[in-house]
Amino acid sequence: MGNRVLVVDDAAFMRMMIKDILRKGGYQVVGEAEDGIKAIEKYRELKQDLVTMDITMPDMDGITAVKEIRAIDPNAVIIMCSAMGQQAMVIDAIQAGAKDFIVKPFQPDRVLEAIRKVLG
């Protein structure tokens, strides 16, 4: 079971928060990106076991990014980071191949539980 994570979110603050949660949970954050396009670049470049992907981002949103990444790597493991009220978008993302979702505001144990399950 791998533990290398790529964190994608347009808010530096959110990235910081999720990185902290991940590190404390024993995961290694190998990269971060602030929009979908950069996420795809990083995905090609890095070797990660998991991507956490925000939905609403400038330039390329998270759902499009999921589709593109899954086109590059059909086995990509992606967890969506959603805000409340993004039900339809989360469903789209899961249809696009995301494995699970976590809801902001993040609760560390829920985040780690979701990650454990998709990586397990």
Binding site: D10, M14, A83, P105
Partner: peptide
């Protein structure tokens, strides 16, 4: 983004 951040 402000919503997400302030909620958190």
């Amino acid at each position: 983004t402000l919503k997400g951040a302030s909620m958190t």
